[in-house]
């Protein structure tokens, strides 16, 4: 019904593809940041360390006292005293091998793992101070919280990017639809004269732009997913967020929503633009 327009059609497809490509990355970033925030919140929150620094002779007595306190604290699932080898393994990355650790006055470390309900850190701290003055509870809160906040903010930025990409796509489709409607004013006039209702004319444009947006977005999403898939593998412990970018398991289904969203946006953007400009024609 509406004459084909090669060049502008290709521009619409290209823009939809580019937006979908960007959306896939924003989505991957959001999901990775979300996973990181969750992990820092849940896994690390449940583990804590009690460090006992005391004169050599008192360490053992204070360790026993601290263990007594920990074992009677509700919300703690397990408590374990780290042995010499384990402590040495923890220190090796920092100070290198071959150091005679035996001669250094090392504090004793106790690993504490909370259960689902969690424990009251402040209460535990006070009881430890009373029973074992050399014991210090470190629940990692001090360094964990800013990291969780940063990861959460990053996830929000990713979601905001997706929102902006969606709105930009809508704006682009509206502009393209307006151009097409203006270029086809004569066609619309003829259709009106032979009895076409607005819905018929709108449908012709909506079908065309939705198809273009979905085709472009499918292409862009495919390329975006491929690019994410081909990201070089880095161990997550070392790379942190950079290594975590990507999709995991069912997460690969998320980007498939991008072409659907593009189609939905194109449908409504074209429909509203067309209905509005038809009102201005006779």
């Amino acid at each position: 019904m509406v004459p084909p327009t090669g060049f502008t059609a290709q521009l619409t497809v290209f823009s939809a593809a580019a937006m979908a490509f960007l959306a896939v990355f924003a989505l991957a970033l959001s999901l990775a940041a979300g996973r990181l925030a969750d992990r820092w919140t849940s896994e690390l929150a449940r583990s804590a360390t009690v460090r006992i620094s005391a004169p050599q002779g008192q360490i053992e007595a204070q360790t026993r006292a601290a263990l007594g306190v920990l074992q009677t604290t509700p919300g703690i699932a397990s408590v374990r005293v780290l042995d010499k080898d384990e402590q040495q393994a923890l220190l090796t990355p920092w100070i290198g091998q071959g150091l005679p650790l035996d001669v250094l006055p090392l504090p004793q470390l106790i690993e504490v793992v909370g259960d689902e309900t969690g424990y009251d850190s402040e209460g535990l701290r006070q009881r430890l101070a009373a029973e074992a003055p050399g014991a210090r509870l470190d629940d990692h809160a001090r360094w964990r919280e800013p990291l969780v906040r940063a990861a959460g903010r990053l996830r929000d930025l990713g979601l905001l990017s997706i929102l902006l990409i969606t709105l930009t796509t809508a704006a682009m489709i509206v502009l393209a639809a307006h151009a097409a409607l203006a270029a086809n004013a004569q066609v619309i006039r003829v259709l009106r004269l032979i009895g076409a209702q607005d819905s018929f004319i709108v449908h012709a444009f909506v079908r065309r732009f939705t198809a273009r947006a979905v085709a472009g977005a499918t292409l862009g999403t495919g390329l975006g997913m491929l690019a994410v898939l081909l990201l070089p593998d880095a161990p997550e412990t070392a790379g942190g967020l950079a290594a975590g970018i990507g999709f995991r398991g069912w997460g690969w289904l998320w980007p498939l929503a991008v072409p659907l969203l593009a189609g939905f946006v194109a449908f409504w953007a074209t429909r509203l633009a067309a209905l509005r400009s038809l009102k201005e024609l006779s």
Partner: peptide, 20 residues
């Protein structure tokens, strides 16, 4: 607008410049 469109289906128009 839709009423007018429906009414025009009952009116055949031959335009001066045809309008194809």
């Amino acid at each position: 607008r839709d009423d007018i469109a429906r009414a025009r289906r009952r009116i055949g128009i031959v335009h001066q410049d045809c309008q194809f």
